[in-house]
Simulated assay, not measured.
Amino acid sequence: MEKRVFTCFRLLSVLLLNSASAQNTNLFFPEGGTLNLSLPVSEALTSVLWKHNGNLVVELVNSDLEYYGRFENRTTLNQNTGRLEIKNITEADSGSYSVEINNKVQSQGYDVTVLKKVPKPEVVVRPLTCAPALERCSLSCEGDTRGDGTVTYSWKEGDGEWKQEERNITIKNSEEIKRVKTFSCRMNNPVSKAESEPHQNPFFQDETNGSSGVIWGILCVVFIGIIIVCLFLYFKKRESIRNICSQRRDGNNTRIINETQPLHANSTALESQPPNSNSTAPESQPPNSNSTAPESQPPNSNSTAPESQPPNSNSTAPESQPPDSNSTAPESQPLNPEESEEHL
């Protein structure tokens, strides 16, 4: 009991005497993390006392170690270095921390702030109907930052560098902005940072899409031209093949006509030509002096007359022609006197 009273009196006196001269360092820790406080010590430790906002946290006297209040079971004191460690800290652990080593109040203190980690932000376009027809739009880096302390914002255009800006920025529908594909934002506080997903620029115009559209148009025109040329060549070749086939058919017909014309001419000549003195009669011709007469004719000394026609001296007339002085009469005509004598 006396020890506790003495300790309280000593702490009160230290607070009163050294409050004006104490210099604190600002430190930030994430909520749920671990708080670590230490001091450079060059002498052996016999006593250590840590306080939070004037309340006892832990006390070491010789080898006796005692933890106080809500810091018990989650606080550790290194007896060799005086280092203080508090786990699973919350916002309630924020405040001023002071230390006394070997019954001497240290001028070095700490102002601790426990902060929440920033959430992953989202880029929101306003108005929501922002389109290339508008002159300007605004972008906002949205996220719940309550309990995050001092939050700063940064913006990035496409794959460019991060630039610290306000939470809300304005973009204009200019040629420079039209070349930016996406916008990203980032939130920062002393214990964390988080980036948004890239958001499509409402004013973005893809130059490659325009050029690719022109290229596709040219390719389509070329393709259609090739099809037209191929069709033209196909029909032209087809027409030439048709002409060649027609010429071949005409040539074959001409050759057949040429081959049949002499036969027709010969047959016509045989039917219509009158016999001359040197011509030989067809089947109906009577035999000459060297020929044999047909069965119905009386034979002469050297030849036999044809079956149906009497012979003359040189030739026999056709069936349809009347006999002349040199021709032989048909089958029904009698022999002339000269032939009778010759026969006799």
Rank of each mutant, 00 (worst) to 15 (best):
S174P: 00
N258D: 10
K163I: 07
T81L: 14
A317Y: 03
K156I: 10
T328I: 08
Y68V: 01
D111V: 06
R238S: 15
C137L: 09
Q108D: 08
P299C: 05
P306D: 01
K87V: 01
T46R: 09
Q79Y: 00
A281D: 00
P330L: 14
L16W: 06
V151Y: 04
V125W: 14
S279E: 12
S289C: 02
K237T: 02
L16D: 03
C130S: 11
N209G: 01
E295H: 02
W162S: 06
D93I: 01
S315G: 01
R136L: 11
T7G: 01
R238H: 04
L335M: 06
D64A: 10
N252T: 04
G82T: 10
P318Y: 06
F203H: 04
D64Q: 07
K172Q: 12
P287A: 04
N201G: 13
K120N: 04
S94F: 07
P286E: 00
G147L: 05
P318E: 07
V112T: 13
E142W: 00
L65N: 08
T34W: 01
E338I: 10
Q333S: 06
L37N: 12
L27Q: 09
T280D: 00
R255I: 10
L39E: 14
K172A: 13
P282N: 07
G213Q: 15
S325E: 10
C137K: 07
L219V: 15
R238I: 03
G32R: 14
V221H: 02
K87D: 02
P198R: 09
R4H: 03
S303Y: 01
G158K: 06
T46A: 06
S332H: 11
G95C: 06
T254Q: 04
C8F: 00
V114E: 07
S246G: 13
G210K: 13
M187N: 03
W50I: 05
C245K: 10
P306Q: 02
G143D: 09
N78E: 15
I244G: 07
T182Q: 12
P40T: 12
T7A: 04
P30V: 12
T113H: 14
D324P: 00
I228R: 03
R126F: 13
R4M: 00
L16V: 09
P311A: 11
L11P: 00
Q247M: 12
W216G: 03
C8V: 02
I218D: 12
A305Q: 08
F71A: 04
P299G: 03
T280H: 00
T254E: 11
R249L: 12
S42Y: 12
N62Y: 02
E197P: 02
L134D: 15
N102D: 08
S13H: 03
T170S: 12
N209H: 05
